[in-house]
């Protein structure tokens, strides 16, 4: 099952990340996972939140460029080689990862990772066939 990630365009300008985060905070939106990709003159903030629709609405109302992307959250055994074993299966099945990052929290002993795949449907099939646990939207909300 896919979950929704929000991507936000950020100019490399002082306080811009703070403004985005404080906007979400003041609207009662909780960030579950976050990563920033940066270039010379701009960055892209990628987040998974508890209330996606509300978050996108308030960001756009405040002149942020934001769009949504389907990503997959995966439970990975939190021990040496845990991530490698998942990546091995993906690699064996020719699944390309655009980027990935970790959740801040977890609800079991396993670590939670967000994957952005080139082909999200094919990736889900491989994960399911290999009994790798995919986290649902509801589980994210319940974190």
């Amino acid at each position: 099952m896919k979950i929704t990630q929000i991507s936000i365009f950020l100019e490399n300008r002082k306080g811009r990340l703070f403004e985005a985060c404080s906007l979400l905070g003041s609207n009662g939106i909780n960030i579950r996972a976050l990563t920033i990709a940066e270039t010379e003159d701009f960055g892209v903030l990628r987040i998974v939140v508890d209330k996606t629709d509300d978050a996108v609405k308030c960001l756009r109302e405040n002149n942020f460029v934001a769009n949504i992307t389907d990503v997959v959250a995966v439970e990975v055994s939190d021990k040496p080689g845990g991530l490698a074993s998942v990546l091995k299966k993906l690699s064996e099945n020719n699944i390309n990862i655009e980027y990935m990052y970790g959740f801040m929290e977890k609800f079991s002993d396993n670590a939670l990772l967000v994957f952005r795949f080139e082909d999200v449907n094919a990736a889900q099939k491989v994960l399911t066939n290999n009994n790798i646990k995919i986290v649902t939207k509801d589980e994210i909300k319940g974190l």
Partner: peptide, 15 residues
């Protein structure tokens, strides 16, 4: 100015 149509979550597409 970047708008939602041209924006992508992928840096490579923006570049």
């Amino acid at each position: 100015e970047v708008d939602e149509k041209m924006f992508s979550d992928e840096i490579s597409k923006l570049n």
